[in-house]
């Protein structure tokens, strides 16, 4: 394949997947541009997490096209290959390496050769250490760098995980429910943090928290029963009757 099918960074078309006959994703189509930040909302079970599973290679779709950077067919790659292509993912449940320090978590995530030989024999360079310092500052965890990740608060773990995404230096970040279980102050900080990241990198944020979505102030896609129900600004989609019926009204 030489010509690019699309200029978009991420291109999903007619994607479907079913689990034991239940269609979790149904003819889903979605495009995300370079550097764009997109919010995805939708009721529980709408298929938001499953969509991320498909993009990151955890779940294979039954049918449909998933393209990255115009010509990379993501359905042909596995999780680690997709991560190396430049897609980072934050899980719904925060997952960091609890028995490593905050600093080590970032060091492990840093974009570089992850092969056996390199991991056994190469040291972290001083530029890489500076990069870790920068990220620590961005995620506001500089003062806890040598503590175990297990000792962080829930919100701090979420930030550390976002920091690990940054260390990966991806082109696209998928962020699943980043403010679940956060205090109001933490939520505001997180919105600020994500806005700092966007621009340089494309970000897809899945969230339930409406004030948070409003804070982000970006294009919103509403997902319901595995397909796109509406797309546009938050005000635009909140005015849509079908959206109100399926989600906001409840």
């Amino acid at each position: 394949m030489t010509e690019k099918l699309t200029k978009s960074l991420l291109y999903l078309d007619g994607v479907s997947v079913s689990f034991d006959g239940f269609k979790a994703i149904n003819e889903l189509s979605l495009t995300v541009e370079h550097g764009e930040m997109r919010a995805i909302i939708g009721p529980n079970g709408a298929g938001k997490t499953t969509m991320m599973d498909i993009i990151t290679g955890k779940t294979r779709p039954d049918s449909g096209t998933v393209l990255f950077e115009g010509d990379i067919d993501l359905t042909r790659h596995d999780e680690s290959a997709i991560a190396l292509l430049g897609i980072g993912r934050k899980f719904q449940k925060p997952t960091v390496f609890e028995s490593h320090t905050v600093e080590d978590n970032l060091e492990l995530a840093l974009k570089r050769d992850h092969g056996i030989f390199a991991t056994l024999f190469t040291d972290t360079s001083s530029e890489q250490k500076e990069r870790i310092d920068e990220i620590l500052e961005t995620i506001r965890l500089g003062h806890r760098r040598s503590e175990l990740a297990a000792d962080l608060s829930h919100g701090q773990k979420q930030w550390l995980e976002i920091g690990m995404l940054l260390a990966q230096d991806p082109k696209l970040l998928l962020v699943d429910e980043p403010v679940a279980g956060m205090t109001d102050a933490e939520t505001i900080e997180t919105a600020k943090l994500l806005r700092e990241i966007a621009g340089e990198k494309a970000v897809i944020v899945v969230e339930h928290d409406m004030t948070f979505i409003r804070d982000l102030d970006v294009k919103v896609t509403v997902l319901a029963e595995g397909s796109v129900l509406a797309e546009g600004s938050l005000d635009h989609v909140s005015a849509d009757e079908r959206v109100i019926e399926s989600y906001l009204g409840r």
Partner: peptide, 20 residues
Amino acid sequence: RYGKVLVSVRDAESRTRFIG
């Protein structure tokens, strides 16, 4: 660093995969 990755695999295998 390989040893740290070993422990990462033990504690959160899928996280390790998703980092690459």
